[in-house]
């Protein structure tokens, strides 16, 4: 075998190895992106103990968010589109969970700013995750939609994957609910960072650990 052929073979083998490594990395990355967080077992009725004020003439949307979760940036983005598509039929609360040991201002991130800038969205700091626990939320980006009568209409995430913008089943379902009153899906997987530490999550009321295997 000539040196030329040896070099070509070596190059080919290296190329195959290279593509394999990249493919494996991409696969691992994809697995990470589509792996959902813990979905909330949200109350079927608007929790009475919540400090949030439900608007009775329209649906109320509640999103729990970790102020530093990069994946939630996509959820905020999708919320903005959702609010636009809902055309005022929704009053939205975005609760930024602040762990108890963190100082004030820790929650002041670009996410909070972005969320506050969305028309019809109320940003609330949730110290210690009290409200999150009331809605049994465990994953940043967890979204719940309650109807005008306080009944749970939808729960889940409004992104198709971790940190992934674009059309998704959650947003589509909410828009359909507020515009048509019906939808094919009432829950979707949530992709985001855990709102609480592992120990905290496990003690959270109504917080489930099952994964949405959609």
């Amino acid at each position: 075998m000539t040196n030329f052929k040896k070099n070509r073979l070596l190059l080919f083998a290296t190329g195959v190895l290279w593509l394999s490594v990249i493919g494996a990395g991409m696969w691992f990355l994809k697995i990470y992106e589509i792996n959902p967080g813990v979905a909330a077992a949200a109350p079927e009725r608007w929790p009475a103990e919540t400090r949030l004020k439900r608007v009775e003439d329209r649906a109320t949307l509640v999103m729990l968010a970790h102020p530093h979760c990069p994946c939630t940036r996509a959820s905020i983005g999708e919320l903005a589109r959702l609010m636009t598509q809902a055309r005022g039929r929704i009053t939205a609360y975005v609760l930024f969970v602040k762990p108890p040991n963190f100082s004030d201002g820790w929650e002041q991130t670009d996410l909070l700013t972005s969320a506050a800038a969305i028309p019809g969205v109320h940003v609330v700091r949730d110290d210690g995750g009290v409200e999150a626990n009331r809605f049994h939320a465990a994953t940043s980006g967890q979204t719940m939609l309650y109807g005008a009568q306080g009944g749970l209409m939808f729960r889940g995430g409004i992104t198709s994957a971790r940190g992934h913008s674009g059309d998704n089943a959650g947003r589509a379902a909410i828009v359909s609910l507020v515009t048509n009153g019906e939808t094919g899906r009432r829950d979707t997987p949530v992709f985001g960072c855990p709102l609480f530490a592992q120990t905290e999550c496990t003690t959270g009321e109504g917080v489930g650990h099952e994964k949405d295997n959609h």
Partner: peptide, 22 residues
């Protein structure tokens, strides 16, 4: 996405490692 969080805990985001190594 510098970090990924779990409540008050954070660690380097997998995207950082992916950008670096992959």
């Amino acid at each position: 996405s510098p970090k990924t969080w779990a409540g008050p805990d954070s660690q380097t985001h997998i995207h950082v490692w992916a950008a670096l190594f992959l």
